[in-house]
Design a binder for these strands. Structure first.
Length: 577
DNA sequence: TCAGTTCGCGCG
DNA sequence: AAAGCGCGCGAACTGA
């Protein structure tokens, strides 16, 4: 392997044409840190078969090489990268981009459990596929100071390893039937790189006001518990007066004994077990305390701390293939679990002169389930644009759809979501009551259960087949493969392909979207079946229409028999429905 | 003292 | 034993 350190444009010039002619490039970067808004891009490594690995010393070679690099990185040859999201962010910071991308880390994640490695770091992949130890000597390397020849060699090795890895990964993706989902994932990575870079705007003044309010709520909840736990000990300190509580309300053993002292015996202190005692004054006070405490410790304080010092925005990080079903997860902070309460969502806004564009899929998981189970009644209902919750309600109550009451439709919603995924009558009863406040006796739940499967025979048949013959593996409609443990349960065997296919659809939409949005439109968030954009006021309506169409197109490409519907709207804040 | 686990709860 | 599923995170708890 030959390595060439590039510090000026004339060194790069002889390689521009050969690189442009290559049918596959491997790209890697080295940076001075992990934050693209704060740290610097130090090296760009470019490897192609039959050429020396070019190691671009960014501090010296940029900007003179920028135009040439831009042409190389956006030529038609796929750019092989490991965890492309990371490199793309730093390339963006340096005024560069790369397209199209193939991500070896995502490939390895798709192959996990099908002969792939357990860990998906570049080192682990080299070990697994190439039988090659990575040079540990320079693995934790400092890229801030002067570069040594060793470092240049090390950087070049990573890029050339990618090319050889691909020779192994590509046939594995084909063999497991995952080439199509791999394309979707790779395109999605580029969208997520933008999303992480752009971040989302938080109205911090409003967030602080909410924080103060919830702090007051927590205070009064604690005071309302004094009759049960006693007054705090007051102590004067240098900073004023402190309250020292002798009792810890966050300790479950303490809460358990407190409840017991007041005649409430439960097997745990979770909301689920406290539900029968929800009207006891003690339980009410405790619940109020927990709600406030949860909001403060999980959202209000951490989100304030996560506002980026340079951009003033939140930059949640997305883990593209996180859940076993293929769903994404998110942290730092996790924007996917911001309370639905309008007080919280209203703090997510657009800066002056801009608007948010919100879009979500309508009942995507039920549509996917209808497709996978091949339930003709459900498919028919969706083709006619009908409300499936209302249809279920009318079938269960035995009345015409226009006779169905609001409460009956509400119960049917619980029935639809629960029963499709193998929930039993008892679970249905508890779930309906807690989630939707719909009262349902056990005999009622049993009757609902029976009638449901009489009405949706496709779902019943699907369940029977899965119970009779628990699958060893299954895949989503876009081909994502998962292996199950022996004797997989019905809830898992139904949920995985449905949840996973819904994830396939959202990811496809994100990938398609990157190239279609009006100028200066940002992708600012994704929450499973929902995509958030931020656009200039004048472009927002157009962005909304592009978003809705793209989401529906992505869904309809994956569900052949069931129409997919997305709804999009321009909004001032995330609270607007 | 500290890493790992469990509980409880927010979201889809 | 019984159970719809999937996550991340804070606080308490556990064990060495």
């Amino acid at each position: 392997m030959k390595t060439l350190r590039i510090t000026a444009r004339d060194q790069l010039a002889p390689y521009i044409a050969p690189i442009q002619g290559a049918n596959l490039l491997a790209i890697d970067t080295e940076t001075t840190g992990l934050d693209p808004h704060q740290d610097r891009l130090r090296l760009i490594q470019i490897a192609a078969r039959g050429l020396p690995v070019l190691v671009i010393d960014c501090e010296l070679a940029l900007p003179s090489c920028r135009d040439a690099l831009r042409a190389m990185l956006c030529g038609k040859a796929p750019k092989l990268m490991h965890n492309a999201k990371f490199d793309l962010a730093f390339l963006r910071a340096a005024g560069l981009s790369a397209w199209p991308v193939l991500d070896t880390m995502l490939a390895a994640l798709l192959l996990k459990g099908s002969g792939g490695p357990d860990r998906t770091s570049l080192a682990a992949l080299s070990q697994h596929y190439l039988g090659q130890e990575m040079d540990k000597r320079l693995q934790v390397s400092d890229w801030t100071g002067a570069l040594t020849d060793d470092q240049i060699e090390y950087a070049a090795k990573d890029a050339s390893a990618l090319l050889r890895l691909w020779d192994q990964l590509k046939p594995e993706l084909d063999r497991t039937g995952q080439s199509a989902i791999f394309e979707i994932e790779s395109a999605c990575a580029q969208a997520l790189a933008r999303m992480e870079w752009d971040g989302i705007h938080l109205d911090t003044a409003r967030w602080s006001a909410l924080t103060r309010q919830v702090e007051r709520e927590r205070e009064s909840a604690i005071e309302s518990l004094y009759p049960y736990i006693g007054e705090p000990v007051r102590q004067t300190t240098l900073w004023g007066e402190d309250r020292i509580y002798t009792q810890n309300l966050d300790s479950n053993p303490f809460v358990m004994s407190l409840l017991k002292r007041h005649g409430i015996v439960v097997k745990s202190t979770a909301r689920y077990d406290l539900f029968p005692f929800r009207n006891e004054p003690l339980v009410r006070c405790l619940t109020a305390y927990r709600r406030a405490q949860k909001a403060l410790s999980s959202f209000l304080y951490p989100f304030t701390a996560a506002v980026h010092p340079r951009t003033g925005r939140l930059h949640p990080r997305y883990y593209q293939i996180a859940a076993a079903s293929g769903r994404m997860s998110c942290d730092s902070p996790n924007i996917q679990q911001v309370p639905r309460d309008a007080a919280y969502r209203a703090c997510f806004t657009a800066p002056a002169g801009r608007k948010l564009v919100l879009a979500d899929y309508s009942q995507i998981e039920l549509r996917v389930a209808a497709q996978i189970a091949g339930d003709s009644r459900m498919i028919q209902a969706y083709r006619e644009g009908r409300d499936l919750h209302l249809l279920t309600a009318s079938l269960l109550a035995g009345k015409a759809m226009d006779q169905v009451t609001k409460a009956e439709r509400q119960s049917a919603k619980a029935v639809n979501f629960g029963l499709v995924f193998g929930m039993g009558p008892a679970g249905l009863q508890a779930y309906a009551e807690q989630t939707y406040g719909a009262q349902m006796s056990l005999p009622d739940a049993e009757r609902f259960h029976r009638r449901y499967f009489e009405a949706y025979t496709g779902i019943a048949h699907w369940h029977r087949a899965l119970k009779h013959d628990p699958p060893k593996e299954d895949r989503t409609l876009a081909g994502r493969l998962f292996r199950y443990p022996a004797g997989v349960s019905l809830p898992i065997a139904t949920n995985f392909p449905v949840q996973g296919t819904a994830a396939d659809i959202t990811k496809r939409a994100l990938g398609l979207l990157s190239g279609r949005l009006p100028k200066d439109t940002k992708m600012v968030g994704v929450v499973h079946d929902e995509i958030l954009l931020e656009a200039d006021e004048g472009a927002a309506e157009l962005a909304a229409e592009v978003l809705r169409q793209t989401m529906e197109e992505a869904g309809n490409a994956i569900l052949p028999d069931v129409p997919v519907v997305a709804e999009a709207r321009v909004a001032e804040s995330w609270a607007e429905k």
